[in-house]
């Protein structure tokens, strides 16, 4: 199969209890409604959506932490509903969570990175090799004997990525990994992710609400109220400024500038995503005048 993740009419329903008028009520809630998503092997996909749109629910589905109520989800060819595949799925699709503090298990960096392979029952000399090489890959070799509590958020998140990498996954799902980081940490994490995608060919599913991070992806999927509402390359998505705003999302800053300039009648392309492209477009503008 060419697809790393293939969702077919995926539905996920959950009941939530809440208190209203002094009585507890339960309500079923469709977090995902007829979602059809295909993610190619080796691609970098960004999933956008505002809070409560169902994007995190989808991420957890990929890791078989929750299973579909209806429809089917294949991860690396395994049906997530079949319980016998659960460990294969989790090994082939690793997951990095939002809060770096709540996903580090051990008191020493290298011990934490070893946690995944240890669970897989890999031989100890082999684990040592993997740990050393993945710490190198995320640029954290110098910290391997340190306590995670002494590291910055961005460093902790890179350790979490290393911990997933040590299990040799084919795909990494990142659920808002940069949401709690400072700009420096965000940059480091994004560089690590893009490098892993380009150099190691690992499929990346990046769930975020930072638009400038989504720009780096091959494909962007927008989820709203559990429904896939937009899908396409970053350029195709971000030109639709009005539509994105209607879903409660922003566009990258330069794209918004381009959008506003166009509104004022200045002839520059609408699909500008990076400051460099903007510079190019503005320079050409000068030439034509």
């Amino acid at each position: 199969m060419d697809f790393m993740v293939k969702a077919n009419n995926l539905k996920y329903e959950y009941t939530r209890t809440f208190e209203a008028d002094k009585e507890t009520r339960t309500e079923t809630f469709l977090a995902l409604n007829d979602v059809n998503i295909n993610i190619k092997k080796g691609s970098f996909v960004a999933i956008l959506g505002h809070n409560g749109s169902g994007k995190s629910t989808f991420a957890k589905q990929i890791n078989a932490l929750i299973t579909p109520t209806d429809g089917t989800l294949w991860v690396n060819g395994y049906d997530t509903k079949k319980e016998e595949f659960v460990w294969d799925i989790r090994q082939s699709a690793g997951m990095v969570f939002q809060n770096p503090d709540n996903q580090i298990v051990a008191t020493i960096v290298e011990e934490d990175v070893a946690f995944g392979p240890e669970n897989l029952g890999i031989e100890s000399s082999q684990i040592r090799k993997r740990v050393d090489s993945v710490l190198e890959a995320v640029g954290m070799s110098a910290f391997k004997r340190q306590a995670p509590s002494k590291l910055s958020g961005g460093q902790k998140q890179r350790i979490a990525i290393a911990g997933v990498l040590a299990m040799k996954p084919k795909c990494i799902v990142l659920d808002e990994p940069t949401a709690m980081l400072d700009p420096e940490g965000r940059k480091d994490v994004m560089e690590t992710i893009t490098r892993l995608n380009k150099e190691e060919g690992i499929t990346i599913v990046h769930i975020t609400h930072y638009m400038d991070e989504a720009v780096k992806a091959d494909n962007v999927i927008v989820i709203d109220n559990g429904i896939v509402v937009m899908e396409g390359t970053p350029k195709e998505i971000f030109v639709q400024v009005d539509k994105l705003k209607a879903y409660g999302l922003d566009v990258p800053q330069v794209t918004e500038v381009a959008y506003n300039l166009r509104k004022r009648g200045i002839n520059i392309p609408a699909d500008i995503l990076t400051p460099e492209e903007m510079v190019g477009a503005i320079c050409q503008l000068k030439l034509t005048i």
Partner: peptide
């Protein structure tokens, strides 16, 4: 809340108790 998230993160990294588990440092 942390405990809940940690449990999920551990499960995502294939934690399933002590059976068939190896250690890096023997």
């Amino acid at each position: 809340r942390r405990a809940d998230e940690l449990a999920m993160a551990m499960e995502a990294r294939c934690y399933h108790g002590g059976d068939n588990r190896t250690r890096m440092n023997v």
